[in-house]
Amino acid sequence: MGKMRSRGVSCALLTSGLLLAAAGAQAGASTPAMLSNACAGCHGTHGESAGPSMPSLAGQSKAAIVTAMKEFKGIPKKDAEGKPVLDKDGKPVLETRTSTVMGRLAKGYTDAEIEAMGDFFAGQKHHSPAQAVDKAKVAKGAELQEKHCIRCHVEDGKEGKDNSPIMAGQWLKYLQVQMDLYTGGQRKMSEKMAEKVKPLSKEELDAVLHFYASVK
């Protein structure tokens, strides 16, 4: 590299650098990617999880992600008349979804930020992970879900009605952990879901999960 020329070039570069540094002083508000990339440490690059107990978020429906995040944060409980229920200190009582770190993390985001993250992950392409499923259970589960789940987990779980999550190609281990939380009473089912799940045995529920995990 010629010395004279390189000086000229770096001077020009530096000048533009100075202007940029000034622009950088007023950094812009967070972007969907900035918010969501931070989640990838646990949920995988672009929300594609490589860990069996951690759900993939890539390609999940926005409504399901936003609902989950708001439930982790806590949703103000309402009484029969639709008025917020208050505790003895006059603070609204929150209904929160059981979680480990997610409750603590979700509280760090505004509703607008949660919407932005929902958009980001919904816009990523989902790839079903390679995982072992039991063929007999898959076949049995395929039938059971047609009868019990299909109204909300539409099209073999490839779509979700309203805020029902997409189930297709999710990690089996994650689905099983969540089902255990549901049946163990630690995670609250919607009335609709409770009604459908009630008649199913533990084995039958597991078969349904094997089915969803198997869908590509």
Binding site: A40, G41, C42, H43, G44, T45, S49, A50, G51, P52, S53, M54, T100, V101, V177
Partner: peptide, 13 residues
Amino acid sequence: LYAESWLKNILTE
């Protein structure tokens, strides 16, 4: 359980 998947995910990243 989640810690194991955390490791798997962050090392895969």
